[in-house]
Write a protein that binds this DNA or RNA. Structure first.
Length: 901
RNA sequence: GGGAGCAUAGCUCAGCUGGUUCAGAGCAUCUGCCUUACAAGCAGAGGGUCACAGGUUCGAAUCCUGUUGCUCCCA
């Protein structure tokens, strides 16, 4: 295989993805190996890939590829959820364009359109995931409305209903008047909005007055009114009371009184409750139980009637008495005018407050009372909380445990019904008299109903009507780790037994509660076992100014454009590097650029090695370098392993990066690089290398490709198949290669080499400061005070420092530039003489530094309590530091004396 | 209003069970190099009172308390 001269990821990324697919490298079936399983957090079927998915799925892919390369049976299950409200909104919009109104369609027909839409447009995101290299087992692609998945949802509903954990009730819900459905708290986006605060007068009606006259007497009433402040004047017709704080001295005269709602003159009581803040507004609060959650609770407490004046679409109904049929916002404008004309509007003020908007339709959310289905949380929350507290499930990073606990201890019942068609229709069946039964099929329901319906002896199966509502999409998702393996209908099937519980879940902290927590509940309820061992929580991808990425801001790059520009490998590692677990990622395209530069580096290192010729007659002169890199590689592997074991993915990546770029490319390859020769006619000719160096280096390269593969699957697979590595069978692919295992490493060699690197750096510094070209060879002399055997390292120092002669001397060389490496003294004789004054200043600085250093070390060692309390190894290193510093100091002091003499 | 978290170089962040003079990385900046794999590169350099104030300790960026500033969640 010939290889391109430059790194061009576009030329090979798609090719290898197809190759992996074709040879079924992603596929998993249960076998004897240890399983490693991840279920994807199913993206919304209407969604497209955004930066958050990119990060999240890269992490999953790194984990799954690593597991595969450790010999585990790796299974990553992909899929999408049906996103009832989002999908239904899309289908309704599509039908509207075709001139069809959802209301005019029967349910079945609407669902037919919805399925068509799903087949046609749904799941684009899964295709996009392939571009980033996601090694999912696509044969297992699941959808939350697949027949067996839906069946699991229905079975769960029935199961929990029978346990008494699902019930029907009237509750205040977040109502989306445009989508005409309840939405969860999580689907409500709160924004600060400029509004007006309307000050409205309510006339006080005295008992006396009521007793004596049918007609209002203006002169009495005008002198007696109270004023409330509200942002929602259109809801006054739904008022049930006015509430004041019992301690509010301003309003003592109102205790026990009644007032009249302006415009409609309905009488309502003045009630007392210290819920009312005296310093907010006027201190008088209008209580509207049907249209405000807090008012609802207040109403319950005081036994107030609930007057609901709004239709499902947000328009006013008959109970409002006036403005019937008007939209709530139009009504607000009109009623302000009417109040003003009636003299009931005292004033208006500008006011900022938080308003909830529907995430899906952007309509202003209306708190609304409605009959909904609820799932009790109390019994399930307790064990799910314990599972996290006792470490059965690890949250990474741990800081989320607090947040999790807080939520689980204050959990509220889960509203699981949605007034939509797209989703699993609730398996409840109503009798003509309003009673209902819960059953899987109409026939089963009929059997149940007959037991109830004694007075309907004539009841037929067709008299039953099924509940119109569907269940919340999360009621599907919480079963995901079980239902993708069909573990509810067939709890003992071999797949669920093999793959469950899964290993790691990678998701965003914002769905820790309503998805992760509920999966734990479902897992414990159905299988008596948590669904995963570790939950890795990613951060939020933000732009470089720290703003969340959003469509409306237009600050989100398209991940596919980035992949096109920088290659999937580059984007993957660019994102991974700057995102430790749980930390938000300030995205900047520079990260991707960095990633692709690394790809380029690897590519070019490969070209270098590939270009070498071998001469079998040569003996190996690079054994020290080879042994050093082998040790260094083992050492790096332990670091990488350690980082992974603690889920420090970005750290693991950086350890790998440093090993490859710094140790392998910048040091090792430079050490062993065969030199060149300029022929008589000025042509450069590369010299061959020996067989051993060549073989060992290729092996190192192969190992490097392996450890890089989970991070950068494409470039590694591309290079893996190069002829440099010899013939490869089809199944001999990097994706399934086994990670190298680390051996012992020679710490002496590693530390000696650090000194050698220091020497080379010093030589380069001398060249830099003296403006000596790297091409000009220098001589170097060393006075050895340590135990390092420099004869082993002469070749390396010679090559990297361009030193043509290394002498071991017993006395210092006068007039030469000198430097210390550890305690060994080095001399570089130059033609020019060294300025003694400058040299003196340099050495004095060194002395000053070392004395300071010694002082801090000595202060520890002379401190009795340090000696008593510190661990022995800490004391030992302090002693060694002291000895080293004293030795250095002696050498430098001598140097200063020589300079003076 | 209740809870949680964060504050380290110009920027983005590491620094894990306190212990090498521990203050680090990458990017950005500056200097010198188109050296024979790579200018997406090479060789170097500068840059920080670890938010502030106390405390615990032989020893604190790290643990504790308070203050200030920011973020998120819940109401």
């Amino acid at each position: 295989m010939s290889i391109s001269k430059t790194y061009q990821p576009r030329e090979f990324e798609d090719k290898w993805y197809s190759y992996w697919l074709q040879h079924k490298f992603f596929a998993s079936v249960p076998d004897d190996r240890e399983p490693y399983t991840i279920v994807i957090p199913p993206p919304n079927v209407t969604g497209v890939l955004h930066m958050g998915h990119m990060l999240n799925n890269t992490i999953q892919d790194v984990l799954i590829r690593r597991a595969r390369m450790k010999g585990k049976n790796a299974c990553w299950v992909p899929g999408t959820d049906h996103a009832s409200i989002a999908t239904e909104a899309k289908v309704v919009a599509m039908l509207k364009e075709q001139g069809v109104n959802k209301k005019d369609l029967p349910r079945e027909e609407f669902l037919k359109y919805a399925w068509e839409w799903k087949e046609k447009y749904g799941g684009i995101i899964l295709e996009q995931l392939k571009k980033l290299g996601a090694s999912c087992d696509w044969d297992r692609t699941a959808f939350t409305m697949d027949p067996h998945m839906s069946e699991a949802v229905i079975d769960t509903f029935i199961h929990l209903y029978k346990k008494g954990w699902i019930y029907r009730g009237i509750r205040m819900v977040n109502w989306d008047p445009q989508g005409k459905t309840a939405v969860s708290d999580e689907e409500v986006i709160r924004k600060e909005v400029n509004q007006k605060l309307y000050y409205i007068r309510y006339q006080v009606s005295s008992t006396k007055y009521q007793d004596h006259s049918e007609q209002p007497n203006d002169s009495i009433l005008d002198s007696s009114y109270l004023t409330i402040a509200t942002t929602r004047p259109e809801t006054i017709m739904a008022d049930s009371a006015i509430c004041i704080n019992p301690n509010d001295e301003r309003y003592v005269h109102l205790h026990g009184k009644k007032v009249l709602v302006p415009l409609i003159n309905r009488e309502i009581p003045v009630i007392l409750d210290d819920y009312v803040a005296m310093d907010f507004g006027t201190g008088c609060l209008k209580v509207t139980p049907a249209h405000d959650l807090n008012d609802y609770q207040l109403g319950q407490k005081h036994n107030l009637p609930v007057i609901d004046i709004l239709n499902d679409d947000g328009s006013l109904n008959d109970k409002a008495q006036i403005l019937v049929g008007e939209d709530r916002f139009a009504a607000r404008k009109k009623i302000a005018v009417m109040l003003d004309e009636a003299g009931s509007l005292e004033k208006t003020e500008d006011y900022k407050s938080q308003v909830g908007f529907s995430e899906r339709t952007n309509a202003v959310i209306e708190p609304k009372l409605s009959m909904q289905w609820f799932c009790k949380m109390e019994e399930m929350a307790k064990p799910a909380l314990d599972a996290v507290l006792n470490g059965e499930v690890n949250l990474i990073p741990e800081k989320f445990i607090n947040t999790y606990r807080h939520w689980m201890e204050n959990v509220r019942d889960w509203n699981i019904s949605r007034q939509l068609w797209w989703g699993q229709q609730i398996p409840a069946w109503y009798l003509p008299d309003g009673q209902f039964v819960v059953a899987k099929t109409r026939e089963e329901a009929f059997e149940e109903a007959k037991k109830l319906a004694t007075k309907y002896s004539q009841l037929t199966v067709n008299d039953l009507t099924q509940e119109e509502d569907v269940v919340d999409t999360w009621f599907s998702s919480w079963l995901w780790p079980i239902s993708v393996f069909n573990g509810i209908a067939e709890p003992d099937n071999p797949e669920i037994k093999y793959y469950y519980p899964t290993n790691d879940l990678v998701t965003a902290p914002e769905i820790l509660f309503f998805w992760v927590a509920r999966m734990i509940m479902a897992g414990q309820e159905w299988r008596g076992e948590v669904p995963f061992k570790n939950v890795y929580l990613t951060g939020i991808v933000r732009d470089k100014l720290g703003r969340k990425m959003s469509k409306s801001l237009g600050n989100s790059p398209d991940p596919l454009d980035l992949i096109e520009k920088y290659g999937a490998d580059g984007v993957r590692i660019g994102m991974l590097r700057s995102s430790p677990a749980g930390n938000d990622l300030m995205f900047d395209e520079e990260h991707c650029k960095w990633g692709s530069s690394f790809g380029n580096k690897i590519w070019n290192a490969f070209l270098l090695v590939k270009g070498w010729q071998v001469d079998d007659s040569l003996t190996c002169t690079n054994r020290v370098a080879i042994e050093w890199f082998e040790s260094r590689f083992s050492q790096a592997l332990t670091e990488i392993e350690d980082n992974f074991s603690q889920y420090r993915m970005s750290e693991a990546l950086m350890s790998t990066y440093k090993l490859v770029w710094d140790d392998f490319c910048a040091w090792y390859l430079e050490m062993i690089k065969p030199g060149g020769q300029v022929t008589a006619d000025g042509i450069f000719k590369q010299l061959p290398t020996d067989r051993e160096t060549h073989t060992r280096t290729i092996k190192f390269f192969e190992d490097i490709l392996k450890i890089l593969h989970p991070f950068m699957p494409f470039i590694t697979e591309e290079l893996w198949h190069d002829e440099l590595f010899g013939e490869r069978g089809i199944k001999d692919s990097c994706i399934v290669a086994q990670l190298p295992s680390y051996g012992e490493f020679n710490t002496q060699l590693l530390s000696d080499t650090e000194v050698v690197k220091l020497i080379i750096t010093q030589i380069r510094n001398i060249r830099n400061s003296k403006q000596i070209s790297p091409k000009e060879a220098l001589t170097l002399a060393v006075k050895v005070n340590s135990k390092i055997d420099y004869s082993s390292y002469g070749a390396i120092i010679g090559k990297l420092g361009n030193i043509n002669q290394l002498d071991v001397v017993s006395d210092k060389i006068g007039g030469a530039i000198s430097f210390l490496a550890q305690t060994d003294e080095f001399f570089v004789p130059l033609n020019e003489s060294v300025d003694p004054d400058a040299e003196k200043i340099r050495l004095e600085k060194e002395v000053e530094y070392l004395q300071g250093f010694l002082k801090s070390v000595n202060s520890k060692l002379t401190n009795e309590r340090f000696i008593q309390n510190a661990k022995p190894e800490i004391i030992e290193t302090e002693r060694r530091k002291k000895a080293d510093a004293e030795a250095k100091l002696a050498i430098i002091t001598k140097g200063l004396q020589d300079l003076a003499g």
